[in-house]
């Protein structure tokens, strides 16, 4: 069964003359152990797709299913529960808690899962090491650079066992080596059985995915599947 399924999803932003069709009739399935990359120009609907997949936004038409649950039929409380227990978010806005150290920020989702602090801390230290932040465990967010904070946010998003991992330009402020470490981490998480969706405008990052879909004007125009026949390239001739 798919961990994430979008069925004919449409989403419109704004109203009247300012109406923008952010997504139009998009269908997509992501299975356990599968990483999908979403590419497309600015305004093509990439982030809208991710927000809908994570239950942070609601579709105008169609339905979004996470682990078989139709998000549109869930109460706010149920939605909050599934967001917390099933979905890991690596978003551009970091949302680190300023009064907690790097390690405390990272152990937070584990503690919410009922893992004791004694067990959680070594996991956090390991996660920090994986994003090349050894020795930063007891620093507060304002004692770290933007790139370092981003890596803490990534470690936090990937530390807990989540069925679905959603990443929006997770390597934005990072140099290429650290960015690659983050992708390796995401790839490992997916290889362990999670389903992943990675929004990126960088082809070399999208290449870490099993499948790449291209969005244009809110619709999927292509995915990295088999080559089309030569005839289909000459449609305008007919």
């Amino acid at each position: 069964m798919s961990v994430l399924e979008l069925r004919g999803v449409s989403r419109t932003h704004g109203s009247g003359a300012n109406v923008v069709q952010a997504l139009h009739n998009v269908s997509l399935r992501v299975s356990p152990g599968e990483l999908i990359a979403v590419m497309g120009p600015s305004g093509s609907g990439k982030s809208t797709l991710l927000n809908l997949a994570g239950g942070l936004d609601a579709a105008d038409a169609g339905s979004v299913h996470v682990d078989g649950h139709d998000l549109s039929r869930m109460s706010r409380k149920e939605l909050a529960r599934i967001r917390r227990t099933s979905v890991g978010y690596v978003f551009q806005n970091l949302n680190l808690i300023p009064s907690l150290t790097a390690a405390e920020n990272i152990t937070l989702p584990l503690e919410l899962d009922g893992v004791s602090l004694r067990k959680a801390r070594p996991l956090a230290l390991n996660a920090l090491s994986e994003v090349d932040l050894d020795g930063f465990a007891d620093r507060f967010p304002d004692e770290m650079s933007g790139g370092q904070q981003q890596r803490v946010a990534i470690a936090r998003a990937l530390i807990a066992q989540r069925r679905l991992v959603l990443a929006d330009e997770p390597t934005g402020a990072l140099d290429s080596a650290t960015g690659e470490a983050v992708l390796r981490l995401l790839r490992t998480k997916v290889d362990e059985g999670a389903a992943g969706v990675l929004v990126t405008h960088e082809a070399r990052h999208a290449a870490w995915a099993d499948r790449v879909i291209f969005l244009r004007d809110g619709s999927i125009v292509d995915s990295s599947g088999p080559l089309p026949s030569a005839d289909s390239l000459l449609t305008a001739r007919a």
């Binding site: 070399r204 290449a207 292509d222 289909s232 001739r237």
Partner: peptide, 23 residues
């Protein structure tokens, strides 16, 4: 009579597949 955007898209998918293989 050539759908240029389709030519671009077809090439981009093929380039992406190569990139996936190299990665």
């Amino acid at each position: 009579g050539v759908d240029v955007r389709a030519v671009v898209q077809t090439q981009r998918s093929a380039t992406m597949r190569s990139l996936q293989e190299f990665t």
